[in-house]
């Protein structure tokens, strides 16, 4: 296998991993949206904490929009950009830059939410942790793909 073939294989693995993590994020956000809207949990604190408590907190919305919906939107946007790379290879670099930006916002905001869970709400929602981990790995992957872009460039051509 030539170096170029190896690079192409590595790029495809990273792309496929990104697709997988993005799908995990979409499903995760859908569940959290269901917890927020579907169950109509009262805004109260219960012993033991968990997703109900976190999702019932005043920090779970931005301007009245549940954070879970905003997170789901971010994952769907990432999914769209990843798929765009295959259909429009000429837009790959722009797509990668946008993914990197979304991932960076996602990771920074997830860090803030994790701080709130640990030190303000005093309850941990495992599904929020899953989302934070997915966003973190996606940021690492998009960073690698951006740095390696010149060698990966022809992977989808």
């Amino acid at each position: 296998m030539t170096l170029r073939q190896k690079n192409a294989t590595a790029e495809k693995i990273l792309w496929a991993t990104s697709i997988f993590l993005t799908l995990v994020g979409v499903v995760d956000s859908m569940y959290l949206t269901y917890v927020k809207i579907g169950r109509s949990t009262p805004a109260f604190c219960a012993p033991g904490g968990g997703c109900d408590v976190v999702n019932a907190s005043p920090y779970s919305e931005i301007a009245g929009i549940p954070i879970a919906i905003l997170g789901g939107g971010a994952y769907l946007a990432l999914l769209f950009l990843l798929l765009l790379e295959t259909s429009k290879p000429e837009l790959q670099y722009s797509s990668l830059l946008t993914q990197f930006g979304i991932n960076l916002v996602g990771v920074l905001y997830s860090a803030y939410l994790t701080y709130l869970e640990l030190f303000v709400i005093h309850a941990i929602c495992p599904y929020c942790v899953v989302s934070a981990i997915c966003m973190g790995i996606l940021l690492i992957i998009s960073s690698i793909r951006l740095v390696k872009y010149p060698t990966f460039e022809e992977s989808f051509e």
Binding site: Y59, I62, A63, V105, L108, Y109
Partner: peptide
């Protein structure tokens, strides 16, 4: 830009 967006989200989302 990412930092600015996150700061804005935190400010708007504060109770």
């Amino acid at each position: 830009i990412a930092v600015l967006v996150v700061v804005a989200l935190i400010q708007v989302g504060k109770p």
